[in-house]
Design a protein around this nucleic acid. Structure first.
Lengths: 235, 235, 235, 235
DNA sequence: TATGAATGAGCGTTCATTCAT
DNA sequence: CATGAATGAACGCTCATTCAT
């Protein structure tokens, strides 16, 4: 009976906000630009969001929720494989998924990277959580005898986060999809050598022999973009 | 040639700008705040700077020039030691100096980290240059047989830049000076193991034996704050 | 002639408008609030009223029409009693009815009192009319020898209007019904003494002796709310 | 040394605000209009006032302060004359001064009269205070035997406030100065008859004989416009 | 040089009104 | 008739920049 809401509008606004925020920064992103890019009026923006900040928050939180889903701490996997082979396979696959997700959400990642100053409360907790989880994984690897005992888990987590942070940024410098699998391979190799025990290196060596560089086979493992309500099928 | 302006004013404005930019972000830093903090009027600001952006630019470029001085590519050192021991000592000392400089200039570093969006042209070139120089050093280490041949210098430079980037940020999370030398020690150890040849590891092992943890001896090596043209004489 | 609209809707909208206007003032009353309070949509509001102002106008005019009905000039009563006793009884009863009506419509009265500035064209004519009619009554009382000849009917009408205006506002300061009859008694007494001839005072004295404070007998004389065209049948 | 503030600006803005508020009502008065009328820019307005409301508040409070000065309660006059003749002369003079002041500040009075709804907190206290002081005067007249004992001081104060309220509004309906003294004469006469004891009436009669209508002699007693911070000498 | 009052473009937000359903 | 999403003109306020002193 009523005029039905154009289901496109809110999504279009979110996408437009994503783009404008990523392009112009948060403070200088203009609501008018977002609305124009979404093809609606400024008023329509305020029909869907309390404020400019609220739109950013929705954007960021949807992304963060997605991230969290991919990057849980080891304690949250009751059936985490004990076998080193399988554990490495598991983490490798998880990293691929994460990078896939980051690639899909590269606009938001850029926004988040620029969330310094007034808006960083939105991501500070997230950054801290990522550091904590990374450290938890480092410790887990120490406990199962794959990382050396003489490393400082906290510092190492910092280095790994930074390296991945930079690597993921490198992904976004061009619009072409980078060879994620190869990058991860090299990154893992570096950190495994840098932090691993002889046991880890042996297993890694085994794995390399098993997978003769067929590592591109994941490219179809489409992860959803905005996981919840905003599907983005893309057959 | 009349009496020149109070040389204190411009300097005070730069310091104030540094603080306000770091505190409030670039877009929401107000010229009025900068002027007030410097103890001068808004008008005085415009006697010294074309615009808010110009002040930022001067600030950033003075810092970048300082950075460049510390972090030259290997080709610019005609007398770079060939002896691995000395080379490692040289790079270790250089890294200490860089971190010292970063710590001294932590406000600007924070600003630069937030230079996304509208202002990133100011630092993009710098980031790229850092990456290029890091890669040059990686290649140099490969050439002298200290880093493995099978690593991708470009990717590895990315990882190292990212790790150091994050590590330097970690420096700024508190206002207390962190144990820089220990951090660098651990970082170098990780990357040396991750990327080095057996030759490098042997040398590193030697060095560790030689320096029985006296690594705090640098704490007084005050580097000047704004190295180049921004001297703050008027003693 | 199709089925007419739900007659409840327009009425509900008028009631809601009355409440919202009275509560928030005219300029800051929002159509959306009115519609929500009436339990209909914003669109429905515009099915019944041209604009926000039109709704106000209907509201005010319905009230003014009601007022006019109660407070006609003496010339419009062909059978106005000539006997002073009866005339005083008539005007006393009329005043009670007016105050009763004002009490019933206190929301609108409050709105009207705030109708300065942009909307006062709606009530200016009414105010003027009230003044004119009051003056006509003053003159009538002069003609029948109850008010003194040496008073300025115009000025006196102003004073009386103002006094009643304030008195009626005093009614609305609390939500409890005030002792209207006593108030009117005292008010009439003051003005009768202030303006009346000895003849009037004698009659007033008589009347006071006749009515031994039975003045609350009117409290059940419910006058209808919106008297004229806005009847709320649909019983 | 600095560019000195145009002393005209703030005053011009206050006067302009007075006019625009009086003309358009508070809610729909546009800052831009005020600034334009004052001959300055919108920004200049905010240089002098925190907000639109703040300007109104300054305007109103300066006026209220002036009013209070003129209309103190009897208790604040230690040397209030006991002689009825002199007391009446005193109050008559005071009323003239008040009306003079109201006439000078008629724009603000109009604004205040329209201060219903969102802004009435500014004047509610004032209205209440006026009522309280009026009642105090009524009681004083009762105590000195000039007003009858059987009147309700509270109600009577309401009537008098209302009458004067309306009378003062009548002043503003045209731009020509009304015969204030004559109006007050008639008003006092009405209320003295309505409320006074025979003693008061006798004194009033005396006074009327003494002053053969020379009542316009006050017209040059210019009271200053904005009394507060702008002087209040007039010993 | 230095000041700070003045400017005015710009932006976030509101809300009366329209219109597709 | 009814709905409520969409529109867009306002308007309050901010702040970089100018300029008279």
């Amino acid at each position: 009976m009523s005029r039905t809401a154009d289901p496109h509008t809110k999504d279009a606004l979110l996408r437009a906000a994503e783009e404008v925020f990523a392009e112009r920064g948060l403070a200088s992103a203009r609501v008018e630009d977002i609305a124009r890019l979404a093809g609606v009026s400024k008023g329509a923006f305020y029909l869907h969001f309390e404020s400019k900040e609220a739109a950013l928050e929705q954007l960021v939180q949807a992304f963060l929720a997605g991230c969290s889903g991919f990057f849980a701490p080891p304690s949250s996997y009751p059936d985490l494989p004990e076998d080193p082979h399988e554990l490495l396979a598991f983490t490798a696959e998880r990293d691929l998924q994460i990078y896939e997700f980051l690639w899909e959400n590269r606009s938001i990642v850029r926004i988040i990277h620029s969330c310094r100053g007034e808006y960083d409360h939105l991501v500070e907790a997230f950054r801290a959580e990522v550091a904590v989880r990374t450290r938890a994984w480092v410790r887990h690897f120490q406990e199962v005898g794959l990382f050396r005992q003489d490393i400082d888990a906290d510092l190492v987590a910092t280095l790994m986060c930074g390296a991945h942070h930079e690597l993921s940024e490198k992904m976004f410098t061009s619009d072409r999809r980078p060879p994620i699998a190869a990058w991860l391979e090299a990154t893992q190799s570096t950190f495994f050598r840098g932090l691993g025990t002889p046991a880890l290196l042996a297993v890694a060596e085994d794995r390399k022999r098993d997978r003769p560089a067929d590592i591109q086979a994941h490219a179809n493992a489409r992860t959803r973009r905005r996981p919840a309500h905003v599907q983005r099928e893309r057959s």
